[in-house]
């Protein structure tokens, strides 16, 4: 744990000066200077396309003292109709050891392209999201965050405990007519990054939950790919479109191939 802090500390000085205000998206785009222009995996995804910097709202605290678990919510303001919906949402952190944070693949059954989760942010940086519509258009959004190291706030590193791979799910009990229903999920898992050492100084190998799937009546609502920047005990809040009811099946898969499941009953509206 102390090792991790020391490592995080060592990279901070170079970055503190990171400007808190980026150029406005439009001008950044024009200059080829947007954060997605500097991140290779984002460039591969875009494959030459230029995203419109609009419609994505990223909620992050402006300052956090615990980079190991930063609450993140993203909403894409876009229809979720069968002929035009958000089919994918990718999240990147420009100054993490690897920039990929998490990705989500929605179907119209999700009702809205909005999620909440918790992520690891190594240092002060730009977080950005890219969304692809079913018609092939790209949208983008950015947000700055300052990460400080505080001796007063413990930095979390969950260990593999007796509740390993235990899952939790809760769907909202009262569906509001015509509104998507929120579903909260959690799996207990340390999400070992492979960047940490144990108390004897030996590297702890990477071991993460890498995928998540939610299905209702055999149809996919959402799948997710978790990278190591998803915080320990991955938490995910997502939505289900109105009019859907029945058992919601959730499956998490670890990179060992081990899976865990959970089921929730989605009430009729």
């Amino acid at each position: 744990m102390h090792r991790t802090i020391a490592r995080i500390r060592s990279v901070i000085p170079a970055l503190v000066a990171t400007a808190l205000i980026v150029a406005s998206p439009a001008s950044a785009e024009a200059q080829g200077n947007a954060p997605w222009d500097r991140v290779d995996p984002a460039q591969e995804l875009l494959d030459g396309a230029t995203p419109r910097a609009e419609s994505i709202q990223i909620d992050l605290p402006s300052v956090t003292q615990d980079g190991s678990s930063v609450p993140l919510s993203i909403e894409v303001d876009h229809p979720m109709r069968s002929d035009d919906y958000i089919e994918a949402l990718y999240v990147f952190a420009t100054r993490n050891p690897s920039p990929e944070v998490v990705e989500y693949h929605f179907t119209p059954l999700a009702g809205k392209a909005r999620i909440s989760t918790r992520v690891r942010l190594n240092e002060s940086q730009t977080v950005f999201a890219l969304a692809r519509t079913s018609r092939g258009a790209w949208l983008a959004g950015t947000r700055e965050i300052r990460v400080t190291v505080s001796g007063c706030i413990a930095q979390g590193n969950a260990e593999k405990g007796p509740d390993f791979m235990q899952t939790r799910v809760r769907a909202a009990s009262r569906a509001r007519p015509g509104e998507p229903l929120d579903v909260r999920t959690l799996i207990n898992h340390p999400m070992e990054t492979g960047l940490r050492e144990d108390s004897n100084g030996n590297a702890i190998p990477e071991r993460i939950v890498h995928s998540f799937r939610a299905e209702i009546n055999g149809e996919t609502v959402l799948t997710a790919r978790f990278h190591r920047a998803v915080s320990a005990n991955p938490y995910l809040l997502f939505y289900i479109a109105p009019g859907q009811s029945g058992p919601l099946h959730l499956t998490w898969e670890e990179d060992t191939g081990e899976t865990a499941t959970a089921t929730a009953e989605i009430p009729a509206a």
Binding site: V63, T64, Q65, R146, T148, V149, S150, G151, I153
Partner: peptide
Amino acid sequence: QAAPMPKS
């Protein structure tokens, strides 16, 4: 907002 100072 004085992080990393605590509210003490």
